[in-house]
Design a protein around this nucleic acid. Structure first.
Length: 282
DNA sequence: AATCCCTACAACCGCGGGTAC
DNA sequence: GGTACCCGCGGTTGTAGGGAT
């Protein structure tokens, strides 16, 4: 049938987003809500494709995103879930509500993969194996057995994930997650972005709004400050209207499925995978 | 000081699923 | 049922920044 491109390749801006663009997008979302990304570029006047707008919002501007500094608990959970689910980052991200799939994917590729690689052999075996080995030519009985194993692994992972709210346990969780979330809000994310951006204006960006003289530069900084204020104001509005989703709402599917099963009933013997393998990493 | 190399991460690309018509 | 379109996902790329040489 042939798929039309999501956007015209000509005249579409690519590369890093500027605060001005962020502001335009945020103000659009304030008016229309997230979604209908197709209309976003035309409605806002952004020279971006719809996909780029969606990505910018979901990975950066969306309220409640925590960025950087993965805790040991988060890393452990990611490793568990990656072993269980494979590279299904969106699914994994649904168990870390403040993290984006892109962030988790990047962290996995740059940090955790390396960590696992330097770990003992059986850890690497876990890294390399496909968690749901249904593609392997195994008998139905074997597959069911494997599935049961995966279920138990998932229960273990989720049990540990949920215990993250608890203070340090002797089993390897050393730095407890704050009970009152200190997760950065979108406002904070953008404020930080603007701060960094003002300190280090991009050299190669091509928005055409960069100052040519000192006077221009002052004016430019003033404008950026105004933009920052406007952006903060807009984001405060958004955040106050969009109440933070409780963590329980992020754990509906697999968790419900897993915990509907009575934990460990007669299945312990089927668990073959060492569940504490990640403990050695941290 | 200049250059090279490596790392981290933001953003892009292509594909598949879902759905309205 | 077929087509066109939108959206989301996962893999990959581009690039800035920092450290090593």
């Amino acid at each position: 049938m042939g798929r039309s491109p999501c956007c015209d390749k000509v005249g579409v801006k690519k590369g890093p987003w500027t605060p001005e663009e962020d502001l335009m997008l945020v103000s659009y979302i304030q008016q229309h809500g997230p979604g209908n990304w197709k209309a976003a570029p035309t409605q806002t006047g952004l020279m971006r494709c719809s996909k780029s707008c969606r990505l910018r919002w979901t990975n950066y501007l969306r309220p409640g995103i925590k960025r950087g500094n993965f805790t040991e608990q988060e890393e452990k959970l990611i490793v568990h879930l990656q072993a269980l689910l494979g590279n299904r980052w969106a699914a994994i991200a649904s168990y870390l509500p403040k993290r984006t799939d892109n962030d988790i994917k990047n962290h996995w590729n740059t940090h955790l993969k390396k960590k696992l690689r330097t770990a003992p052999d059986h850890l690497e075996a876990n890294l390399n194996k496909d968690a749901f080995s249904i593609h392997q030519p195994v008998s139905k009985g074997q597959w069911e057995k494997k599935l049961q194993t995966d279920i138990n692994v998932a229960k273990q992972a989720l049990g540990e994930a949920l215990s993250l709210k608890e203070p340090t346990s002797p089993s390897g969780f050393s730095s407890p997650v704050p009970s009152t979330t200190s997760y950065a809000s979108s406002t904070e994310n953008i404020s930080r972005l603007l701060g960094e951006w003002m300190k280090n204006p991009p050299k190669k960006r091509t928005l055409g709004a960069e100052p040519a003289t000192v006077a221009d530069s002052n004016d430019y900084n003033d404008k950026t400050t105004v933009l920052a204020e406007k952006l903060n104001s807009l984001l405060s509005d958004i955040e106050s209207s969009a109440s933070m989703v409780s963590e329980s709402e992020h754990l509906p599917l697999l968790e419900t499925w897993l915990f509907d099963e009575s934990l460990g009933q007669g299945n312990a013997a089927l668990v073959e995978m060492p569940l504490d393998y990640t403990a050695e990493l941290f």
